[in-house]
Design a protein around this nucleic acid. Structure first.
Length: 567
RNA sequence: CGGGAUGUGGCGCAGUUUGGUAGCGCGCUUCGUUCGGGACGAAGAGGCCGCAGGUUCGAAUCCUGUCAUCCCGACCA
């Protein structure tokens, strides 16, 4: 590829709208341009990277028994109504109508459409197991697209669906995919961790997320430095901390004017936050529920849903809180509520003695409160968010934290969709059974951004060789000096001949400009042709990730580069 | 959805407070000099100042509406 022919508009200045490194660099180095919020055009170099990643994904999917197909982006509403997700998926679903006013959506994921295929075409146990995948655009109307490719509304995803006859089969498919994912991200040169996770809107039982470790990540994970335990903080189980045992005193109302937060209250009453019962009210569909955690803890909404399942769960409006408690936000508690609601309490609440909570009366709190004596709890459970420093649920060592970009997720769906859509097979006894499903996604475009997030320096991107758009750039220091130019072209052609992916910077620019662009774009290897080396019979080779330049004999350079690439 | 901010040549920005018909740097084009880490000089091209109304003799600037983009939040009672 001739650099001068390539549409790669590099910028000297950082676009004002980019916040995170990957977004800044991908725009600046001429890989992507924004079309609308969360929607991007991929230019030539980006497309090459996406193809590299896709190729790795394909190889590993095929190795794991996958077969590639292509599903429609436009999907009929009927299927989504049948699965029950037309309403559940909410505003994130991009909806549209055709000229006959029929409802459609742009696929945010493809469980419905593939289950529809399989229920029609698969009837016998002889056709199972089946693993179908595609690499495709997906559409999710995110409430807030951000960080360039990291959270877009249109993005590229590989999704594979496994169809097995029973749980054991699913188990095997799942393990195969888990291993394939590990291989894929390793080959992409990423530092990542598989973590236990929540199954969210897609539904199902077991699931892992593959997290690329980076501070720009939106997910928080905890991991154990001693064993292999790692989990999204959303689901990491907590062990209740012990509360001090003391003599129970009589409940008492005290005046606490203006003390409407835990922080203010601890200062005012001179007590630790652990003594406070934090009471929060949630709107769970049409019902208001109360959730109690210790004052120093954070409520975990995902865990609430495990105790009290509902389609929607959000903090109740202040007016609602008033209605239920008779008090005001900041002074509410579980004792003597105006209206009877379900009260869910974290395990740590169970053993609290002489606790403090709101009195359901403005500017007043109750002290010496005790659960099960002063108020009744509907159910206890693990309802709080884990914090770094807590013990590992597996081995007890102290947990560490990290932020991660979710680049892949594997799910055991079970029979959720096969049941909803009626996907069955007949076994060898002539009996009809539900197909057991799994689904497995990789954000391909997000993986590209994650790779940049993890591999860069002040000069630009440093691609891992395996996913670099081109492996080598040949830079003639001057295109006007015939001896230099001809030598550069010769090396370029020899590299092409050897099957190396190479760009020659044929632009009539000063050497400095070419070096800057080469660094910014992130070619892993750069060959510089100039007067210095022309005379010595050597070639100058610079690896993007190293400081020093290597000098290689001219007659060995092609072989030398080929061997680096082979590794 | 709530809050904040910003829309002025391809990119980054000034000009808006105090209305008078658009400017700087980078990039782009041409010529010359230069030529191993974002050169220099000269001459150019390129903008209905997001859009729609309104006020005014006159609007990038004031008013109203609207659209777009970005950031923060949408959980700590």
């Amino acid at each position: 590829m001739y650099f001068s022919r390539m549409l790669t508009p590099t910028l000297r200045e950082v676009p004002a709208e980019a916040e995170v490194i990957s977004h800044k660099l991908l725009v600046r180095a001429g890989y992507i341009r924004k079309s609308s919020s969360g929607v991007y055009t991929y230019l030539h170099l980006a497309q090459r990277v996406l193809q590299k990643i896709s190729a790795i994904v394909r190889e590993e999917m095929d190795k794991a028994g996958g077969q590639e197909i292509m599903l429609p982006i436009i999907q009929p509403a009927e299927l989504w109504l049948e699965s029950g997700r037309w309403y559940v998926y909410g505003k994130e679903l991009m909806r549209l109508k055709d000229r006959h006013e029929r409802d459609f959506c742009l696929g945010p994921t493809h469980e419905e459409i593939i289950t529809d295929l399989v229920r029609h075409e698969v009837n016998s146990y002889r056709q199972l197991p089946l693993r179908l995948y595609q690499i495709q655009n997906k559409y999710r109307d995110e409430r807030r697209p951000r960080f360039g490719l990291l959270r877009g509304r249109e993005f590229i995803m590989k999704d594979l669906y496994s169809f097995d006859r029973d749980e054991a089969g699913l188990e095997e498919s799942y393990q195969k995919m888990f291993d394939a994912y590990t291989a894929i991200f390793k080959r992409c040169g990423l530092k990542f961790r598989p973590v236990e996770a929540d199954s969210g809107a897609i539904g199902g039982s077991g699931t892992h997320e593959f997290m690329v470790l980076a501070e720009a990540g939106e997910a928080e994970i905890v991991y154990c430095p001693k064993c292999d335990y790692a989990a999204n903080t959303e689901i990491a189980p907590c062990q209740p901390a012990a509360n001090p045992v003391e003599e129970a005193k009589e409940i008492e109302k005290v005046s606490t004017p203006g003390m409407n937060t835990v922080e203010l209250l601890t200062g005012f009453l001179q007590i630790p936050a652990e003594k406070i019962i934090k009471t929060m009210f949630f709107q769970a569909d049409n019902e208001v529920i109360a959730v109690l955690v210790r004052g120093d803890r954070t409520v975990n909404e995902i865990k609430i849903q495990q105790l009290h399942s509902s389609l929607t769960l959000e903090l109740a409006e202040p007016e609602k809180v008033k209605e239920v408690t008779g008090g005001e936000v900041g002074y509410v508690g579980p004792v003597a509520l105006a209206k009877q609601v379900k009260i869910y309490a974290d395990e740590e609440i169970r053993t609290m003695i002489n606790a403090v909570c709101g009195a359901n009366e403005k500017d007043h709190h109750l002290i010496n409160v005790q659960p099960d004596r002063d108020f009744q709890v509907t159910a206890y459970g693990d309802l709080r968010l884990i914090e770094p420093g807590e013990p590992c649920p597996k081995c007890g060592a102290v947990l560490d934290r990290a932020r991660g970009i979710e680049v892949g997720q594997v799910f055991k769906l079970g029979t959720k969709y096969s049941e909803a859509l009626g996907a069955t097979y007949v076994d060898e006894n002539g009996k009809e059974n539900l197909i057991v499903m799994g689904c497995y996604g990789i954000g391909v475009s997000r993986t590209m951004a994650a790779a940049v997030e993890q591999n860069n320096d002040e000069n630009g991107i440093i691609w891992p060789l395996s996913i670099a758009p081109y492996q080598v750039i040949v830079v003639p220091v001057s295109v006007n000096d015939q001896s230099i130019w001809q030598e550069a072209m010769k090396i370029y052609e020899e590299l092409l001949e050897a099957g190396v992916e190479v760009v020659i910077d044929d632009r009539d620019e000063r050497a400095g400009v070419k070096f800057k662009d080469a660094d910014l774009i992130g070619f892993p290897l750069r060959i510089t042709v100039g007067k210095k080396t022309l005379e010595t019979g050597q070639v100058e080779l610079k690896c993007r990730q190293e400081k020093e330049t290597r000098f290689i004999a001219r007659n060995q350079i092609i072989e030398y580069i080929s061997s680096i690439i082979k590794e």
